[in-house]
Amino acid sequence: MSGASLEFDGVTVRYGETIGVADVDLRIDPGAQVALVGPSGSGKTTLLRLAGAIREPTKGRVRVDGTDLSQLSPKELRRFRSTVATIYQDLRLVPELRVYQNVAAVRAGRRSFLGLLRDLFLPSGGSVAQIHEILESVGIEEKLYHRTNQLSGGQQQRVAIARSLYQEPAVLLADEPVSSVDPARARDVVRLLCDAAREREITLVMSLHNLELARDHFSRLVGLRNGRVMFDDDPSNLSSEAFTRLYSLTEEEMIEQGAHR
């Protein structure tokens, strides 16, 4: 399996009055690695939700490998979702289940309900061995049979990564994967994700709060602010003013923030 291309074509999303993203045009090649940066509320998460077909655009088109997502039937949509893996800031594991069960459950999109129950509770040796192998690539294969809530936060994060890799996706979306991890570990996690995606030729789109990490690990940064694309370039071409502008507050926003306090 290799990566898929992503195409946003004049995409706008509105949540009632507020704007998620406004008129975004973006093209991401198969196997490319892109970091989305920008202040919170700038539309990073919305873009990722669009790419995962969790959210429909109010206006415009999202195409994956040339297919318009709005044209998919519900069944095709489910199949499409099974080719997109997402890593969440809050991990979204089932802490009550064991590690291999959490990993195995992610193939639900390609299994019947009963087939999945079998994978979870009466797994074949082959499928567990496969999960063991993936866990090994993130360094926690020893925890294969542990209850997930007995793992440390960092270990659980690795379970989430292993889970997304086990899904064998064409696109890997990561929504602020390291914002609740300490800085030293954050770098390892980002590197792990980038390497894993590169090795498997998966398209990787990661939203990041930490600019330094984004600059060090990605060759393409997309800066978002208020739902609009401010820049889209190689970090070496970007001046420090571009970043300052991305995060600086307008006068209006400063008043708004003051009112909040």
Partner: peptide, 14 residues
């Protein structure tokens, strides 16, 4: 070898 290791982990699971 891997299957053996998995079986061992299963045996030792908490």
């Amino acid at each position: 070898e891997r299957k053996k290791r998995v079986a061992e982990l299963r045996r030792l699971r908490p």
